[in-house]
């Protein structure tokens, strides 16, 4: 399946969920509606698209606006050796998305990391705890609204003179 026919196929089969298609260094980028993420991903994972690997999931905080948070998914097809990036904007007041843990096992920790760092909730996640920071940590450190250099020590720290 060539590049153009792939985009056409996605548009034909999953056109409702796709808001836009662009290009990044030769790889296709789809902008999608967050509400249809799960059904879209289910279709993309299996034949004929066959994106079997969830390479990465991360988030971007654009600091302001209704679509302040943007989830970024990277998919990879082993059989066709091609990559695909998907982006979904989430609301600033209540960033929430559906979990993909049922599709890819590694989505578990990737979603926990995004939750920990950005405070995005994933509905249906089996165990949405913090991953990198520790119990008792308040706030989400990679949000632009997190105070600059604010540390939250677990034990008393001596001050420097």
């Amino acid at each position: 399946m060539g590049r153009e026919s792939l985009i056409d196929e996605i548009r034909t089969k999953l056109g409702d969920a796709v808001e836009g298609v662009s290009d990044s260094f030769g790889d296709p980028v789809l902008t999608v509606r967050p509400s249809s993420l799960r059904s879209l991903m289910t279709a993309l994972r299996d034949a004929p698209f066959d994106y079997a690997v969830l390479l990465d999931l991360t988030c971007v905080d654009f600091a302001a606006g209704e679509g302040r948070f943007e989830l970024v998914y990277h998919l990879y097809s082993l059989s066709r050796n091609v990559r695909l990036r998907l982006k979904a904007s989430l609301s600033a007041s209540d960033p929430v998305a559906e979990t993909l843990t049922g599709l890819w096992k590694n989505a578990d920790w990737l979603e926990r990391e995004v939750f920990d760092m950005f405070g995005v909730r994933f509905t249906g996640h089996p165990d949405l705890r913090r991953l990198l920071t520790y119990e008792g940590f308040e706030g989400h450190p990679l949000r632009k609204s997190y105070p600059w250099r604010l540390a939250q020590p677990r034990i008393p720290m001596k001050d420097k003179v």
Partner: peptide, 8 residues
């Protein structure tokens, strides 16, 4: 110098 690292 951020939220994570002990400053010495």
């Amino acid at each position: 110098q951020n939220y994570a690292v002990v400053q010495g």
